[in-house]
Design a protein around this nucleic acid. Structure first.
Length: 219
DNA sequence: TGCCAGGCCGGGT
DNA sequence: ACCCGGCATGGC
């Protein structure tokens, strides 16, 4: 067994099934994916609640509500002007492609959907992959800053590794399974929040230290 | 109290 | 092809 599988098994034993993504519908996953860009989920939750309480956490709601109004409601998630625009662009894209029914996306290949999502200004690789995996049930592995830090600090990849390269390292070393991909990313975020923060590179108590004999120092 | 959070874009080199 | 500043609120 490889180190990445070992690491995931360790996280699985520690956290179990985290049942990500916290959302009530695929559409909410998409909105949350935009709002959580470089932002604490706590702040995102408040923004989602605001949208929901105003009855616009849905396709037509976001499509028809003025961007300024959306911006005010999502203020707690930060970057609210940018994110209001990004939500508009996403929902307009959805409207063009599906006419408002996300189920219609099942007609498209994962590659075509990823390309389409990435063509939207404000949707980068991680946001696209969040949407593909957690909203659309496609087998793509999500890379976020925690995944990158953990992989580098374990010595699995060099620091200059690109998003796509790192994703392929994970998919090459894990069973191709949508539920596993979901829970693995969830567990990495969970462990990252505690042990792999930006200015805390040295983590003596980081899970995996003893269980991964082939891995390098956690820098 | 400053640092950090489940990124991404655009302009400069 | 990289590097960097900007975007912004809320929690610890």
């Amino acid at each position: 067994m490889n180190n990445i599988s070992r690491f995931y098994n360790l996280l699985l034993a520690r956290y179990g099934d985290l049942e990500w993504w916290p959302a009530e519908s695929p559409f909410e996953v998409i909105v949350g994916a935009v709002l959580t860009q470089n932002t604490n989920w706590n702040n995102v939750k408040k923004a989602l609640d605001n949208l929901r309480n105003h009855g616009i956490l849905n396709h037509n709601g976001l499509l028809e509500t003025p961007i300024e109004e959306i911006a005010q409601l999502i203020m707690s998630s930060g970057y609210y002007n940018q994110k209001a625009l990004r939500l508009k662009l996403v929902v307009e894209w959805l409207d063009n492609v599906t006419g408002g029914d996300i189920d219609n996306l099942k007609e498209y290949s994962t590659g075509d959907l990823r390309e389409g999502l990435l063509s939207i200004k404000g949707i980068g690789p991680e946001t696209a992959d969040d949407i593909l995996l957690y909203a659309l049930e496609r087998p793509v592995f999500v890379i976020d800053t925690y995944t990158y830090r953990i992989a580098v600090r374990h010595g699995w990849v060099p620091p200059e590794t690109s998003y796509e390269e790192l994703a392929s390292v994970f998919t090459a070393n894990l069973e191709k399974d949508i539920e596993l991909y979901k829970n693995c990313h969830a567990a990495i975020v969970e462990v990252g929040k505690t042990y792999c923060k930006k200015r805390k590179p040295l983590c003596d108590d980081c899970p995996g230290r003893d269980a991964l004999p082939d891995s390098g120092p956690l820098d």
